[in-house]
């Protein structure tokens, strides 16, 4: 309809006293996108999701869901939001059906709409046959699914899942991932995790947090380009400009101390040309490797680079 994204976060920050939980977090997200929020424990993932879901008020910045300001009109904004916290918010003494009915009513569904919504949510999370089971007796995987069903029941455009696959067995993880891929068709999904493979399988975009700051934010498609990146080290480095003119190199990024990241046009041949140039010009090539950037590497590199920055600062 309008150009406004479904979720807009601008410059969000939250402090606990002087401790920085998250700072300068900005995000635009549209329906059909799945964003992975990645970071080590304590990086501020949960705080960020809490800010986006209205559980915490930000120290600064703003959040809009579907063009509605979360702070000024929280009720309308939350109507468009499904949230699964780290621990699914369940009542052990209710049955799945009773619980989902309550959730549906809490989200403003009318009595007549409830059975339909419950059926749909249970179907999606494969809980169809378990409706009468007591939540307190469920296994971890089932509890997680009930938690997800709760986030889906009012069909919100935006779904936020905090570590949805933690503590599940591989089969259950696979199911949940399949579910998330399915959700992408009609919803925007944000999920936090510290499992890198998860982001690679289900997400289109990734945002990496470290110690309360977003340190990397890009699409996964863009990451694929990294696969054609060489990482080289010279003892006697040329300047970046010279390096850029070597055949087959389309981009150069200097990392300092003779280390470079080279963007290659084609990965065959380009190394030859590079090695040749290095030999002829006496750059003393010490290291040459194909940067097959999995998220893991980006993750470590980003964290590492950040650590160094702070050490030198």
């Amino acid at each position: 309809m309008s150009a406004a994204p479904l979720l807009l976060a601008e410059n969000l920050s939250r402090y606990y006293g002087r401790h920085r939980a998250i700072e300068a977090f900005s995000l635009r997200l549209n329906v059909g996108e799945v964003l992975g929020l990645l970071g080590p424990n304590g990086a501020g993932k949960t705080t960020t999701l809490n800010l986006l879901s209205g559980g915490l008020a930000p120290s600064g910045g703003r959040v809009e869901i579907d063009g509605i300001d979360l702070l000024e009109r929280p009720l309308q904004a939350k109507q468009r939001l499904g949230y699964l916290p780290e621990n699914p918010p369940l009542y052990d003494d209710l049955s799945i059906d009773e619980y989902l009915r309550y959730c549906a009513r809490l989200h403003g569904l009318r009595r007549a709409e409830v059975p339909e919504a419950m059926k749909r949510a249970k179907q999606r999370t494969a809980l169809d046959k378990a409706g009468r089971a007591l939540i307190g007796t469920l296994s971890k995987g089932f509890r997680q699914r009930v938690g997800i069903a709760q986030a889906l029941i009012h069909q919100p455009p935006l779904i936020i899942l905090d570590e949805p696959t933690v503590g599940l067995d591989p089969l259950q993880i696979k199911e949940i991932r399949a579910l998330i891929s399915e959700l992408r068709n009609e919803h925007a999904v944000i999920l936090s995790t510290h499992i890198l493979a998860e982001v690679q399988t289900v997400c289109d975009r990734v945002c990496i947090l470290d110690r309360g700051r977003p340190v990397y934010s890009d699409s996964l498609a863009r990451l694929a380009a990294f696969a054609n990146t060489w990482r080289v080290t010279f003892s006697n480095p040329p300047d970046a400009h010279t390096l850029g003119r070597v055949a087959g190199i389309s981009g150069v990024r200097s990392l300092g101390e003779g280390r470079f990241l080279l963007q290659a046009k084609t990965d065959a041949g380009s190394a030859d040309a590079l090695v040749q140039a290095a030999c002829m010009n006496g750059w003393k090539l010490r290291e040459l490797c194909l940067q097959q950037d999995s998220l893991e590497q980006i993750f470590l590199r980003v964290l590492h680079a950040d650590g160094q920055e702070e050490a030198t600062a």
Partner: peptide, 8 residues
Amino acid sequence: ALLIAAPL
């Protein structure tokens, strides 16, 4: 968290 994330 359920109550807080709900439109209430």
